[in-house]
Amino acid sequence: MREIRLFELDPGQTVFWQSPATEPPQSLQVLQGLLWLTVEGEHIDHWLGAGESFEIRGGQRVWLGTWREGARMRVSQPASTLCAPRRRSLRAGLRLAWRGVAARMTQRAVARLSRG
Rank of each mutant, 00 (worst) to 15 (best):
Q18T: 15
G33Y: 03
W67P: 02
A103K: 04
A71V: 08
T22G: 07
R72M: 06
L31R: 02
G70S: 03
L34D: 01
G33I: 03
L90S: 08
M1C: 09
E40H: 12
L96K: 06
T22L: 13
V110M: 11
R74A: 09
I44M: 08
E23P: 00
T66G: 01
E3M: 13
Q26G: 04
W36I: 01
E8K: 08
A111N: 08
F16I: 09
L113A: 15
M105A: 14
A102R: 04
R91L: 13
G33M: 03
G12T: 01
E23D: 11
W47D: 10
A92K: 11
L94D: 09
P20T: 13
E40P: 02
R2S: 14
L35I: 05
Q32L: 09
Q60S: 06
D10Y: 04
S76I: 02
R5C: 10
V75N: 03
W36P: 01
R2M: 12
A102M: 06
P20N: 15
A103S: 10
A84I: 05
Q13W: 07
R87M: 11
L34M: 10
S80M: 10
R74F: 06
L96P: 01
G51F: 07
F16H: 14
H46S: 07
R87K: 12
R95H: 08
R2H: 10
A50S: 15
R87C: 04
R74W: 00
R99C: 09
